[in-house]
Design a protein around this nucleic acid. Sequence first.
DNA 1: TATGAATGAGAGTTCATTCAT
DNA 2: TATGAATGAACTCTCATTCAT
Lengths: 205, 205, 205, 205
Amino acid sequence: MKKKQSSKQKILRVALKEFAAYGLGGARVERIARQAGVNKAMIFYYYSSKQNLYRVIIKKSLLELIPKIQETIVVSKSPEQFFDNLPKVYIHYFSQKQEVIKMIGFELIQDPDNITSVVRDIFSNIPESPPGLLKNKISIWYKKGLISEPDPVHLILNILPLCIFSILGTPLVEAILDIKIKNSGDFIDNRINSISNLLKRGMLK
Amino acid sequence: MKKKQSSKQKILRVALKEFAAYGLGGARVERIARQAGVNKAMIFYYYSSKQNLYRVIIKKSLLELIPKIQETIVVSKSPEQFFDNLPKVYIHYFSQKQEVIKMIGFELIQDPDNITSVVRDIFSNIPESPPGLLKNKISIWYKKGLISEPDPVHLILNILPLCIFSILGTPLVEAILDIKIKNSGDFIDNRINSISNLLKRGMLK
Amino acid sequence: MKKKQSSKQKILRVALKEFAAYGLGGARVERIARQAGVNKAMIFYYYSSKQNLYRVIIKKSLLELIPKIQETIVVSKSPEQFFDNLPKVYIHYFSQKQEVIKMIGFELIQDPDNITSVVRDIFSNIPESPPGLLKNKISIWYKKGLISEPDPVHLILNILPLCIFSILGTPLVEAILDIKIKNSGDFIDNRINSISNLLKRGMLK
Amino acid sequence: MKKKQSSKQKILRVALKEFAAYGLGGARVERIARQAGVNKAMIFYYYSSKQNLYRVIIKKSLLELIPKIQETIVVSKSPEQFFDNLPKVYIHYFSQKQEVIKMIGFELIQDPDNITSVVRDIFSNIPESPPGLLKNKISIWYKKGLISEPDPVHLILNILPLCIFSILGTPLVEAILDIKIKNSGDFIDNRINSISNLLKRGMLK
DNA sequence: TATGAATGAGAGTTCATTCAT
DNA sequence: TATGAATGAACTCTCATTCAT
């Protein structure tokens, strides 16, 4: 009863790891099958092709991530709250689900248009358009004189990278500063604080 | 004499694009050969293996990037100058050489330790250790009460992502806000301004 | 009671088309199942293997065709009647059941011995041996001075191809003459006439 | 020097046999490679895909056959000569190159339009259009009162099947008459004679 | 240096067939 | 009878790499 759907799901779970680790080109169907404990042919039975499996996972990943962001936006009553909440939600999520961010990273590098279209596709099924919601909110905050950055594009581009890259970028920083960062809960909390402070001091009026 | 070396160089130029577009696993030796107008076997004659060619390019890319950063650090006499210079240098560089940043992105996702070791390797050949230099400068600035973030790790992690991701991340922002960003010189200048403002307001005391 | 057998029959009907279109090697069990609206496993339940299904259909096809020929022979009281009847019966039959002739064509090319043995098998269950009957008749006609071709082999080989190929061969003729043949009832009637005339003028004395 | 091109040619020779024996769907690339004494990959190196190899062979077969027919037409000064020459040329050719006729047979059954288009393609590169030539000749012969069949379509359909099927059809006749035909030179000569007689008596005026 | 041919391991995919229910 | 899941062998095709020249 529980076992029934498990093959199809297991493939998904294992494939996410494989694709995150090796990319679409480097991933091996056989490895996925072996690790999922499933006959190789079942992957094609359920997902038709490696490419398609990849697409399904990309979509699933975004489908998991996007609503998280949206909720954070909706919930935040002031830009202050927004600058506090967003880094917290994001970084906690990503530090647990590194595979998801890796896949999005790959896709951003290799096929950015695809990401755009998948996200738009996801949004199109949500009644109150998140883009509209967000642009609205920012515009109101700016008119009320609460924030210093009027352009939503730059506002978002001042936030997102800090969240996403705080996990992926650490090795580069380790090299630049010749130190070793221990990926503890403490470090993550400090990271969140530092970002929130930067955003609040930098963009609140 | 000029023609002699051109094959070897052309392979390098073309391979950078190939690896940036498809990653190590997805890149095809034959495609590189064809686009370089070179016999496939020559790639192995010069670079012995696909992997090795990849490594050479990664190293070359970092070898081009790292000194740029170092110079910016050395040149900046105050944190204000630093927050002005770094985004300018980086983003101008990356918006022209997207392939380089894509390769570094791939590597950060797939084999972060490799990046670390290559960078360390590069630094070890520079007399005045850049990591030392940078940590020193930040420490002095903090002690003088010029900046609000005492930890070099967080300070760097507050800067780097904004620079790197400002190029790669735009498609995601386009989707989130349902707009089209035109990648003009104007946009880039605005981006640099917005980041510099954020950094100065957010981390200068 | 009616529904019960319909699956088994439907498979047969659909499989004939599939085999005629793609041959044994090119036919796909899944395609047959889908088009028959039947679960793939049922094909094996009823016919145990693809090969066997093929054999069943070959036999069924010949079992439908052979008696038609035999009857024509028996019915014909003179060679003139024979040369009139045979093309008519054959070509009318084949122009409606192209799949049957295609299957026989495939088999003639790929496994001629199989056809021979199946036909012999069919004949062995008919009391008055058709081969004997036919050879007898021809021999008598020849002795009576009615026909010019004494050898039954050549006589048959002067008739059969004209009947079978009149349908299959048209595309080749279209190409050779650079015209388009419309497969109307008129064309078929003309074809039959032309063949009967040829045979009668060519082999009656 | 002679060995040089032999791989590419050898594949062609062996593949013809394989396709003739098993059809496109049943043919095995590995078998072709083994029998040609060639690495499997070389087949794709030279011919890109199994399908394409098949197409190349079909075209090559027709390219060998078509000119033979054309020459026979051109050479024949009277319908009598024509009815003598065509069966002789054809049947001698086919009895030696059974694979060619088998391939054409397969194609006629499976993808008749393809044959049509390939033949047209071949014709389009011949200066004096064979279709025109043939139609002309037949029309003149008919106007001169030399032949009884005015329609070139039926005239050709009265000849071609007899030539082609005289080889392929023998097993069917063996079964129908319950005899064994020995495929000797004598049999072939008799076959040619019988056909020529049939055609001359049947269609000459 | 340069080339076209060759190689071998293995990749993704297919497919007839079987199993459990 | 009927089904969806599973299997395993085989298939076509790919690709990094090497060889002979």
